Simulated scan of single mutants.
Amino acid sequence: MAARWMGVAALVLLAAGCSQQEQVALDLQPAQVSECDLPVSVQVTWNVLLPGVEAVELHVNNPGRRPMLWTQTAAFGSQHTDAWAADGFTVTLRTLEGRELARRTLTTTACADAAL
């Protein structure tokens, strides 16, 4: 009987279009900046709605640097970096066991002043 209900629950989730991607959110604001403004502070926001995941790790790195643990915290939240994010700055959201859930990278546009 329990197996039957599990199957029904799985069908309901599939019909609703639920997937891991929809249950994990990671956002950088800004996600894109001008090269003129580097380095910048970035607002990082995350929300993980996966069964059994109550806490997460956020790892950060700029190109040419090793990724490092930035924070270990609740499965949802928001936090600012200091002004050390550069082009290619990457935030990786992981479970406490190390499974990658999401990754976002800051990109830049050309500096308008450089064209003059």
Rank of each mutant, 00 (worst) to 15 (best):
R104I: 11
L96D: 05
L38R: 02
D87M: 04
A2W: 05
E57N: 12
L58M: 01
A75E: 06
Q79D: 12
D27W: 11
L26D: 06
V60R: 05
T108A: 07
Q43K: 14
W84R: 06
D37M: 00
A55V: 03
S41T: 02
T107Q: 12
G17K: 00
V24I: 09
L11A: 13
Q79I: 14
L58H: 05
R104K: 15
L101M: 05
G7M: 05
Q79F: 15
A74D: 08
A2E: 09
T95Q: 04
L93Y: 09
L14W: 05
C18V: 15
P67M: 04
A9E: 12
L28A: 07
F89C: 03
A9H: 02
S41M: 02
E57D: 14
A25V: 03
A110P: 14
V44T: 12
A55C: 01
Q79S: 07
L49Y: 06
L50K: 00
L13V: 08
D87Q: 14
D37S: 08
D87I: 00
E97M: 00
Q72K: 11
R4G: 09
A74F: 06
A83F: 00
E35P: 04
V42E: 09
P30K: 03
A3G: 08
Q29A: 15
M6F: 11
V42H: 05
V91P: 01
R104G: 10
C18T: 10
V24A: 00
M6N: 12
T109S: 14
Q29Y: 15
V33H: 07
R4T: 12
L116T: 14
V44F: 08
V8W: 04
S78K: 06
P51T: 02
M68I: 11
V91G: 06
A102D: 02
G7W: 03
S34R: 05
A15K: 06
E22G: 13
Q43V: 10
A9W: 10
L116M: 14
R65I: 01
T109M: 10
G88Y: 06
V40F: 00
G7K: 10
R104E: 15
V60Y: 05
T71S: 10
A74I: 00
T71N: 05
A16Q: 04
V53E: 08
P51G: 02
L96A: 03
C36K: 11
A3C: 05
T71F: 02
T107W: 06
T109V: 14
L26R: 06
A16C: 08
L106E: 02
V42T: 14
Q23F: 09
R4E: 13
V53Y: 03
E22W: 09
R104H: 13
G98N: 07
L96R: 03
V12G: 00
R66P: 09
P67W: 02
C18W: 12
L14D: 14
P67K: 03
A112V: 12
R4I: 13
V8F: 12
C111S: 09
L93C: 09
T90K: 08
L11N: 12
L101F: 05
A75C: 07
L14Q: 11
D37F: 04
F76C: 00
G17Y: 00
A10D: 14
C18P: 01
G98C: 07
W84N: 10
C36D: 08
T105R: 12
A2L: 11
S41G: 14
